[in-house]
Every structure is written in structure tokens, then in C-alpha cells.
Nucleic acid binder design. Structure first.
Length: 565
DNA sequence: TGCGGATCACACCAGGTGGT
DNA sequence: ACCACCTGGTGTGATCCGCA
């Protein structure tokens, strides 16, 4: 019953799938949807999922290998397997943990918060997911099932309606669409404003800290505050759950009416004090921004600006309120905030004219280098809200493309300095000499990471790549069976986890490795050291020790040889 | 097509304020 | 002391864009 309902109600998933979107639009079967989710859903892909055909291929010995490797590495394997039962139910089969008190992953798993949320994720050992394929932590399988049944029943009722009842059909269609429909606001006139947010002169836009890590002050000082401000302004005002409203109403009916205290303020607004000026940003529908950095030659300081062209529902934007909001999010006492009305017909000119003046930097190679590093891979022209992703014209797009010359290494081509020529209404390019060129140094890559509930820091792409990589687990030129490939995936994942753990906190890892070794030596004095590692038995193949660099150990990973013909 | 970088919707959570 | 209510903050998954 469950599976059939799921199959019939999951047709909307197809729109989001790249493969389905490219081809003819059609309904997804449950298996197709599940395969898609396994590949693309970040929450689900945090688990190492094995397709059901390979599930039986994983023997108990393989699990032992994983567990032993995890124990040896002093880190959690956090490898979970999901099996598909005959009734199409996904069941979490097993998890291996190291239970070390130094292990962050285990500490996280033990925390009440994680336990609480994990309890919502799984009902009777099965993953809970809703009709849209999302893992819903606050809904049980029964609730999801009821929701899907109601949707299917509504749709079927709509299909079975006779044609002479258009009114009823409309009502049913309205109910169906209600969940997906966005709120339709009545049309209001829009006004364009030009806002300039600035940060006082700062000595550096990019530098390295004591540990050698790159700090992009440009991002910290001005871009992040702006993103925070915009995000806060986009946040919906919290709505009330119907259950709370009901309880409130019930209490209101049953409670005795108290006498009003005239001393206290009437109609006083309760709750947290709102941030001044944030309501103004709420009325803005979208923005187009340009990052500008000027350089003060005498003081040798940078002065970053954000020029914003916003479209707002409010006719008037008071400058003090914008200033207050900007000061709240930057914690900086600045007074250089400008607000003025803008003409939408001159959008391009207003924004494009604000570019970094390279003439200020030509005498200061260090400053130019610093600026180049700060701007490396960063978009100086950005959009948001209703204007997100729009482009003015192909010409502007081409300008943007050309402007990114600083992204490339100096060996890739010659560097040019571009200046705007108002006479010809075009850019003039000036080729810089070798002494004036500079190559940006890549800092620590700020990759988008996902911290799972198990505390593991990973990415969806990393896992997909690991699965897609063909050279996983050296095959030495031999063709690799699917079974062997999946087995190698497990081992390589564990090894990669060790590398990440080592990279994150080598000191902690070293201490734990030492402690585990000493404790093992005390607990099991019969065995000894071999190849720099402690083993409980010296004979390979039957020992608890498993070394990936050891040939006898690696032999155990090989698939069983076929019988001789 | 893969990867890096960015925004957005949704849900939950922490904390403050007025009232009982 | 507790509750109702309000606010912004934050985690998480989805999606989009630009580039090679």
C-alpha cells in the first residue's frame, strides 16, 4: 500500500531531476526516485548507500574489515548501510563506531541534541521521508502516509469529476494547489533607490594569521554583514501553529476575565526590540550590488564600499535607519552611508562606474597584490532577491568576464589594466609590464561543506566523486568487478576520513594514537609491535590488525578467486 | 559535465518583553 | 515563576550561475 501510494504521488520529483528534465517529462517510479535521491540528496548520501543487488555481496568479513580499520585508525567509520527490504522499506543495517572519548564524532553522537533529532529521523529503524523526498524530522511515517493518501485521493476525485461541474472542479483544484501556491500580493508601485554602504578605512583586505591561514577581511568586514542584513530582512515573520492558537482560544474562553490594570501600558508591543531599519530592507524586493574598494595612498588603507541599486516598495528610505541597520550588523561606527533615488533607465551607468581605481595602486605593489588576493574568485557584481541572477546585457556580461583577469596565473597571459574612456564610451586596455603583474595566491579553499549529524564534515560532491572514481582501490590494471569496486569504496572512504581527521587535528590524533597503543600494550601483552603498529597477533590473516600497506593484509581484500575449471 | 560559489525556502531555536 | 508572544539567528537541503 505504502509503495503504491508513493509511486503514484511522486511525479513532481521528475521536475527536479536533471536526467528527467533533459528528457521527456514523465512520472518517476519509486526505484528511480530512490536512486536519484541516493545520488543527489545530501542528507541521504551522507550514508554510504549500497544498491540492493550488492547488499548480499557484502560479507561479514567485509564488515569486520571496516570495523577493524576504523578502530585501527582511531576514528569512527560512520559507515552505515541501508538495505531495501522486499516491501520496499529502507532499513539502517549497521553502524560502526570507535567509541573513543577523543573522537568528536562519537561525542557528537552521544549528545542529547543529536539523539533527539536522530530519533525523529528514524521510525522503527526506517528513514522517514515526505512526499517531496525530503527527510522530515518532525513527521512520522504515518503522517506522511496520510498526507500522500489525501493528495492522491484529491487528485483521483478531480479526475473522476464529470465535466458539468466546473465549480467543484475549481474548488478541488484550489485545494490541491494551495500547498504549493505562493502568496499573491497585490500589485504595488515600486521605487528605485541607490544605497551606498561603506566601511571605514581598514589597514588590510587580506592577510595571513599566525597559523598561516588566509583571512579575507573584505569578506569579513563588509560582504558577510551585508549578507546577514539581507538574510535577516528576508526572514519571514514567525507564524503561529494552529495548535497553539487553539489552546490560546480555549484558555481565553475558560479563563476568568481579570481586572485591567490601568497603570501598565496598554497595547504595548511585546517581544524583542526590532533592529532599527530592518523593516525598510524588508520592503525591498531585490538588489543589484557592486563592490568597490578605494585605496588611500597616504594613509595606506583600503576603503571598501557596496553600491546597491535596490527596488523597494517604499517611496522614501530614511538614511538614519539604513545607517542604524548597517551599524548594527557591522558593529562599526560609520557615518558614510548614502541613500538617494535612482533612475532605472541609468542602471548600468550607475553601477558600472563604480570600479576599483587601479591608478591608486600602481605605485604600491604590495597593496595591489593584497587586493588581488582578496578579490580572487569573488564576484564584485552581485544580485539578490527579485533581481537574483539577472544580467543587464551580453555586453555587460562580457565586461564582467574580461574584468576577471586577476583570477588567472601570470603565466596564463598578460595582465592588462582597464580604464573607462568616456569619449569613446569603451574600455581602454593597457598592457602591464612584468614588474607590474602579480599572481594571486590561492588561500585555503572555502569549500561548501556539510556537517552531518554524526559530526563528519563532508560534501555531497566528495562522496559522489568517490563513488564515481574509477581508480579507487588500485586495480593494478586488472578489471574490477562491481562487487570489488563497492568494497574498495568502503575502505577508501575510511582512509580518506583518516586523512581529513589528521589534517584537522594532528595533535589530538597523535595523542589518541599513542594512548590507544599504550593501553593496548598493557591490555594485551602477548602481542608485539610490527611495522610501527601494535598488533595483537603477529600472524597476518587472523590478527585483529589490518594494515593497508601490508601485502598479506591487502590480499584479504581481494575477491575470492574463482574455482579452476 | 564537474566544481566552486552563491542565494533561497523552510524549520527550529535562543532570547527578550509584557502579562498573569 | 511562568507563559504567550515576538524577534532575529542558524542549520540544512535545494537550486542556480559561471567557469574550465
Amino acid at each position: 500500500m505504502m509503495a503504491t501510494v508513493a509511486e503514484r504521488s511522486l511525479d513532481t520529483i521528475g521536475n527536479k531531476s536533471r536526467k528527467i528534465r533533459a528528457g521527456k517529462k514523465r512520472r518517476l517510479t519509486y526505484h528511480e526516485w530512490f536512486a536519484y535521491q541516493m545520488k543527489h540528496n545530501q542528507k541521504m548520501s551522507r550514508l554510504l548507500l549500497l544498491p540492493s543487488p550488492f547488499w548480499s555481496a557484502l560479507s561479514g568479513e567485509d564488515m569486520d574489515i571496516v570495523a577493524r580499520t576504523a578502530k585501527q585508525l582511531g576514528n569512527c567509520s560512520t559507515v552505515q548501510f541501508i538495505g531495501i527490504t522486499p516491501d520496499k522499506k529502507e532499513v539502517v543495517q549497521d553502524t560502526y563506531t570507535c567509541h573513543s572519548r577523543f573522537c568528536e564524532i562519537c561525542a557528537n553522537r552521544r549528545s542529547k541534541e543529536v539523539q533527539k533529532r536522530m530519533a525523529g529521523w528514524y521510525v522503527d529503524g526506517a528513514t522517514v521521508m515526505d512526499g517531496r523526498g525530503k527527510l522530515a524530522g518532525n513527521r512520522t511515517r504515518e503522517e506522511v502516509s496520510r498526507w500522500m493518501v489525501s493528495q492522491v485521493e484529491l487528485q483521483s476525485a478531480l479526475n473522476r469529476l464529470p465535466e458539468d461541474q466546473p465549480e467543484l472542479s475549481d474548488v478541488l483544484q484550489k485545494i490541491l494547489d494551495d500547498g504549493e501556491k505562493e502568496l499573491q500580493h497585490e500589485a504595488k508601485p515600486l521605487y528605485w533607490h541607490f544605497i551606498t554602504l561603506t566601511i571605514p578605512n581598514i589597514p588590510h583586505v587580506w592577510e595571513r594569521d599566525a597559523n598561516g591561514n588566509a583571512i579575507n577581511w573584505l569578506d569579513v568586514k563588509i560582504l558577510q554583514p551585508w549578507r546577514k542584513l539581507w538574510r535577516a530582512s528576508r526572514a519571514k515573520k514567525s507564524g503561529k501553529a494552529s495548535r497553539e492558537k487553539k489552546s490560546k482560544h480555549r484558555k481565553f474562553l475558560t479563563a476568568k476575565r481579570p481586572k485591567k490594570d490601568k497603570k501598565k501600558k496598554k497595547n504595548a508591543k511585546r517581544g524583542r526590540k526590532p533592529i532599527a531599519g530592518l523593516s525598510l530592507f524588508r520592503m525591498m524586493l531585490g538588489y543589484m550590488g557592486r563592490l568597490e574598494i578605494t585605496f588611500n595612498k597616504k594613509a595606506r588603507t583600503f576603503h571598501p564600499h557596496i553600491h546597491l541599486l535596490v527596488v523597494s516598495q517604499s517611496r522614501w528610505i530614511p538614511r538614519p535607519l539604513v545607517l542604524a541597520a548597517w551599524q548594527y550588523y557591522t558593529s562599526v561606527q560609520t557615518r558614510n552611508v548614502q541613500v538617494k533615488k535612482a533612475d532605472p533607465s541609468t542602471v548600468g551607468k550607475e553601477l558600472v562606474k563604480y570600479v576599483t581605481k587601479t591608478a591608486d595602486l600602481e605605485d604600491d605593489a604590495e597593496a595591489a597584490k593584497e587586493l588581488a588576493r582578496a578579490l580572487y574568485g569573488r564576484r564584485t557584481l552581485f544580485t539578490g532577491g527579485a533581481m537574483y541572477g539577472i544580467r543587464w546585457s551580453e555586453t555587460v556580461a562580457q565586461w564582467e568576464k574580461e574584468r576577471a583577469y586577476m583570477k588567472h596565473e601570470p603565466t596564463e597571459g598578460r595582465h592588462v589594466r582597464r580604464t573607462w574612456n568616456p569619449k569613446t564610451n569603451q574600455w581602454d586596455y593597457e598592457i602591464l609590464g612584468d614588474s607590474q603583474t602579480f599572481g594571486p595566491v590561492k588561500g585555503i579553499a572555502a569549500r561548501q561543506r556539510v556537517v552531518t549529524l554524526d559530526g563528519e564534515i563532508t560534501t555531497q560532491k566528495y562522496r559522489n566523486n568517490a563513488l564515481d572514481r574509477k581508480d579507487i582501490g588500485r586495480t593494478h590494471g586488472r578489471p574490477q568487478s562491481e562487487e570489488q569496486r563497492w568494497r574498495n569504496v568502503i575502505v577508501s572512504e575510511t582512509k580518506a576520513k583518516f586523512r581529513r581527521y589528521w589534517a584537522q587535528s594532528p595533535v589530538e590524533y597523535a595523542w589518541e594514537w599513542l594512548l590507544v597503543g599504550v593501553l593496548s600494550a598493557i591490555a594485551a601483552p602477548v602481542a608485539g609491535w610490527e611495522k610501527g603498529r601494535y598488533v595483537t597477533q603477529t600472524e597476518h590473516g587472523t590478527a585483529d590488525h589490518f594494515d593497508l600497506n601490508c601485502e598479506p593484509c591487502r590480499l584479504r581484500l581481494k575477491p575470492p578467486e574463482k574455482e579452476a575449471k
